[in-house]
């Protein structure tokens, strides 16, 4: 992983992190958190921890789906 790739994926992660703070819609915030994880997944792969990447990329969507349960409840009330 050379410098240009580090710069590109760091740009993806930083765009996601800043966007998650600036979004006002809750679905927009969840999408931005997904972009942050997309930015850091190649760093885990470049270190060689592929088994960790398998575990993490199966646990993080479960966390998002758990948060979506309360999003649906909130939209139903309002």
């Amino acid at each position: 992983m050379d410098d240009l790739l580090v710069l590109l994926f760091a740009a993806v992660a930083l765009i996601g992190a800043v966007s998650a703070h600036l979004q006002r819609d809750r679905f927009g915030k969840l999408i931005a958190v997904g972009i942050v994880f997309g930015g850091i997944a190649p760093f885990i792969a470049a270190r060689g921890y592929l088994d960790v990447l398998i575990a993490v990329s199966l646990i993080v969507p479960v966390t998002t789906i758990i948060i979506l349960l309360i999003c649906r409840r909130d939209a139903h009330d309002a």
Partner: peptide, 12 residues
């Protein structure tokens, strides 16, 4: 809810 979603970012 906004604070709970924002709490994911320092975790990463």
């Amino acid at each position: 809810l906004g604070r709970l979603i924002s709490l994911e970012i320092p975790g990463f």
